[in-house]
Every structure is written in C-alpha cells, then in structure tokens.
Computed example of a mutant assay.
Amino acid sequence: MSYESSQAAAVAWLAYSQLATKLDQPTLGWLFDEGSLTRRLTHLSREHFCVTPLLEGWQTLRDDECQALGIAPGAQGWVREVYLRGHGQPWVFARSVASRSALERGGLDLETLGSRSLGELLFCDQAFIRHPIEVCSYPQAWLPAEAAHDRLWGRRSRFERDGLDLLVAEVFLPALWQAAKEETR
C-alpha cells in the first residue's frame, strides 16, 4: 500500500452533525455553506478574485475519491487542481475529479476551463444536484508543497447531473481565514 493510499484510509470525512458542537460558528459557516464558494470569495475580495490552474490531466484517482464517486479503486479520472485567489493570495486549494467513464458519457469538457471557475459552471447549471458537504482535516501530503500546512480544514461534495459525478474538494488556507477575520472587524 502506498503512502498516499494509507493516508486516504486514515482520513475521516465528517458530516455537519459530527462537527456542529466542536467548531466555532464562523468556521462552520465557511465549511458548510452550500452556496457558490466562488461568489463568496469574489465578494470577500471585493472583485479581486481569480483562479490559477496548477494541474490538469488524467491520472489514477485516490482511493477516497473512488469511494466517494462509487467507482473501482485505482480508476482513471480527470484531475484539476487550482488555487482560488483573493488579492493575489492563495485562499483556497481546490481539487476536482471525475471518472474517465463518467466524463466520456457526460458531455462536460473540463479540459477547456483554464482559469475559469468550475464552481461557477456548476452553480449556473441548474441540472447539477449537490450532495451533502463532508469535512476533514486535510492531509498535508495531499497539498501542493507551497501550501502544505498541517491541520487545514477541507471540505468536499459530489455534484451530479444525468450520471455525471464530479467530486469537488476545497481546502481553506490560512490567508482566507485572515481575510475573513479582517472583514468581520
């Protein structure tokens, strides 16, 4: 078993009810907000928001991703990793995945997104259904080296449209919490 696979086995993705009494309201509000994170970040940054692609391509999906998508372990999928930035600072690391078979039959071309927000696409298409948000302490090993911090909160949810499932994970970086704190002052 690889290090990454053993990490996946150790990650506990939790529902709201499992965290509601353990976290403060502002943190819960960010983690379990069911609206568009892109819109919320755009508002927080006063329109100084952008998406920076880091990685896009076909690769073997992690075991936890395969399980969440209901596909066989080790399946190939499209992986897109980006930073969601406010005022040029990485606020959120996002990783979106979909199985190859689902994308081939689902008619969504993720390869052409570039610096556009996947979240905006998902929230503009009324056919997508969002499944419940799950939260975890995101493993440092799964983050890009420059964003690797211990004990960062991450969330994920599955979006579904006519048999096409996309799993979107978002990890809240320290600069976001600082910006959110400054907004409430």
Rank of each mutant, 00 (worst) to 15 (best):
Q7I: 10
Q7E: 08
A8C: 12
A9R: 11
A9I: 14
A9Y: 11
A9L: 15
A10F: 05
A10E: 04
A12E: 13
A12V: 12
A12Y: 14
W13R: 06
W13L: 04
L14H: 08
A15Y: 13
Y16I: 11
Y16K: 09
Y16W: 10
S17I: 12
S17T: 15
Q18I: 10
L19W: 01
L19V: 08
L19F: 04
A20P: 05
A20F: 10
K22C: 11
K22M: 12
L23P: 00
T27W: 00
L28P: 00
L28S: 04
G29K: 04
W30R: 04
L31S: 10
L31P: 11
D33F: 07
E34R: 14
G35W: 13
S36L: 06
L37T: 11
L37W: 05
R39T: 15
R40Y: 02
R40D: 10
R40H: 08
L41S: 07
L41R: 03
L41M: 03
L41N: 15
H43C: 09
L44A: 10
L44T: 05
S45I: 12
S45Q: 04
R46Q: 15
H48I: 08
F49T: 06
F49Q: 08
F49D: 09
F49L: 07
F49S: 13
C50E: 08
C50N: 09
V51Y: 01
T52I: 07
P53V: 03
L55I: 07
E56V: 04
E56C: 12
G57C: 01
W58H: 09
Q59T: 08
T60L: 02
T60Y: 00
T60V: 13
T60Q: 07
T60H: 05
L61D: 00
L61T: 00
R62K: 08
R62I: 08
D63W: 00
D63C: 03
D63F: 01
E65Q: 13
C66P: 01
Q67K: 09
Q67M: 14
L69I: 09
L69R: 11
I71H: 01
I71R: 03
I71M: 06
A72L: 11
A72P: 00
P73V: 00
P73G: 01
A75C: 09
A75Y: 01
A75T: 06
Q76V: 00
Q76K: 00
Q76M: 03
G77W: 02
W78S: 03
W78P: 03
R80S: 02
